[in-house]
């Protein structure tokens, strides 16, 4: 009888110990949502995917331009006066081509070596991050708005399309620099196109940003 009791105790001990360790190891504690990716696969195994940002509703942050176009957002964002005048930082919610929010994107641009460089991080939970870089075509968004005589505080309605990617690959495409998880070993190219339909009195652009990527798995 004593042997049976001891056996039961050891069995309980093993069940408790191994059960908890198995629970910790085998259960996916972190399980991010993974919406269906709208990807077109090419014969060379490249993949085409379009990401869309709707302005102004998808804006999370805009460090703004000194001219007020685009304006700083959120309005209560506090940045040190005069610091980093040549840097522009934006954060957006990111949608797939069907309009579903699937990630968050950050964009930096900076004037260096007589040209403006821009970089994106597209972070898609469940898939990882995609890193993109390009040189800006022309003077960027602010220069285009100024060229069209837009002034901060004055609303404007109209339409124009601005492809902002130029270099580092031929045909005015930017460069995919890999990323994390599913994109860790990807290269390729992309275009960034802004289709604006207006700017409101607060200096907030209206329209869409389209990022069309062509990614290829690197050897």
């Amino acid at each position: 009888m004593r042997g049976f009791t001891r056996l039961l105790f050891i069995l309980g001990l093993l069940c408790g110990c191994l059960g908890l360790l198995a629970l910790v190891t085998l259960v996916d504690w972190v399980d991010h949502p993974r919406p269906r990716a709208h990807v077109s696969v090419l014969p060379n195994e490249g993949a085409l995917e379009q990401f869309v940002i709707r302005l102004p509703r998808d804006r999370i942050l805009d460090s703004g331009h000194a001219s007020g176009l685009p304006s700083r957002y959120p309005a209560d964002l506090v940045l040190p006066a005069g610091a980093l005048p040549d840097l522009h930082v934006e954060h957006f919610k990111l949608r797939d081509r069907e309009g579903e929010v699937i990630g968050v994107a950050a964009r930096h641009s900076q004037r260096l070596d007589a040209s403006t460089h821009a970089a994106w991080v597209l972070y898609l939970p469940g898939r990882g991050s995609l890193l993109l870089q390009h040189s800006e075509a022309g003077g960027g968004l602010n220069a285009e708005l100024v060229r069209r005589n837009l002034r901060a505080g004055t609303p404007w309605d109209g339409e124009f399309t601005l492809q902002r990617t130029a270099g580092a690959t031929p045909a005015g495409r930017g460069q995919v620099r890999g990323g994390s998880q599913e994109f860790a070993r990807h290269g390729g190219s992309y275009t960034e196109t802004w289709r604006l339909t207006g700017v409101d009195a607060e200096g907030r652009p209206r329209g869409t940003i389209e990022i069309d990527t062509l990614t290829v798995l690197q050897p």
């Binding site: 999370i60 942050l61 959120p74 209560d76 919610k93 929010v101 699937i102 990630g103 939970p125």
Partner: peptide
């Protein structure tokens, strides 16, 4: 922060946090 910053409330991006550092 700041107080009026949009939340990442959509279920597909709920696991993320995003920040800007100086």
């Amino acid at each position: 922060r700041p107080e009026s910053v949009p939340e990442l409330w959509e279920s597909t991006i709920e696991p993320l946090d995003a920040g800007m550092l100086l």
